[in-house]
């Protein structure tokens, strides 16, 4: 495992825990897109179907269980426990606009036309765009709380670090996974505007505000 990959995974874990911490301590899901979290939950479940069929390492299995359980917990907190605080009226992105194309693409572009491989490819494609409802919500409300900004930064960094890992693996191992790399680049590019605002505003101690 490359250092970039490890840093990426840790950044991913940090993002998930930051979000849970924010919702739990403030007892509020305000400013968080339930739709993005629901889609991330779908991403983990459809990707880690191999959890019980192919063992890779303790690290691998632990992370998979962590991602699925933390994601289910996040969705539960948003839609059940702190439902009253969830800004459903600002979370207006239509999920079918990304779920349907991800599914169609997975049926066309996969490594084998089997249930597991199509489910895996769907998961990779959906992950690339699952953040859109959240970014749309930040744009719509015009701002994000600092901890939400840190969450988005950690989440965006995760796939950006994976890109460095893929470059490293291509050079040193000759390993290359075209589906993951393509989706990973799209995913990272979507965070472009956000990264810019994060560095120019949040790092300088200001709140993240989107200009009208």
């Amino acid at each position: 495992m490359t250092l970039f990959r490890l840093a990426g995974d840790l950044s991913h874990v940090l993002a998930i825990l930051l979000l849970l911490y924010k919702i739990w301590t403030t007892k509020s899901a305000a400013g968080i897109s339930g739709k993005t979290q629901l889609m991330f939950c779908m991403v983990y479940v459809t990707r880690y179907l191999d959890l019980f069929t192919s063992f890779i390492s303790v690290y691998n299995s632990t992370m998979k269980v962590l991602f699925i359980s933390a994601s289910v917990a996040t969705v539960y907190l948003i839609y059940f426990k702190f439902k009253a605080t969830y800004d459903g009226n600002h979370d207006t992105f239509r999920m079918e606009f990304v779920i349907v194309p991800a599914l169609i693409l997975a049926l066309i572009w996969n490594y084998a036309f089997t249930f597991f491989e199509i489910s895996w490819a769907f998961s990779i494609f959906l992950e690339a765009v699952a953040i859109l409802p959240q970014l749309f919500m930040v744009t719509k409300t015009g701002e994000a709380e600092n901890i939400t900004s840190h969450y988005l930064f950690a989440l965006g960094s995760y796939r950006a670090l994976y890109i460095l890992n893929w470059i490293d693996r291509y050079y040193f191992e000759g390993h290359w996974d075209p589906i993951a790399v393509t989706a990973g680049i799209v995913q990272t590019v979507l965070y472009g505007d956000f990264f810019y605002l994060y560095f120019t505003r949040v790092i300088k101690g200001r709140k993240l505000q989107v200009l009208p």
Binding site: R5, D9, D50, N60, M63, Y111, Y162, D177
Partner: peptide, 10 residues
């Protein structure tokens, strides 16, 4: 090849 066998990445 390795793509369908074991996906070591998360």
């Amino acid at each position: 090849d390795t793509n369908t066998a074991a996906k070591d990445e998360l």
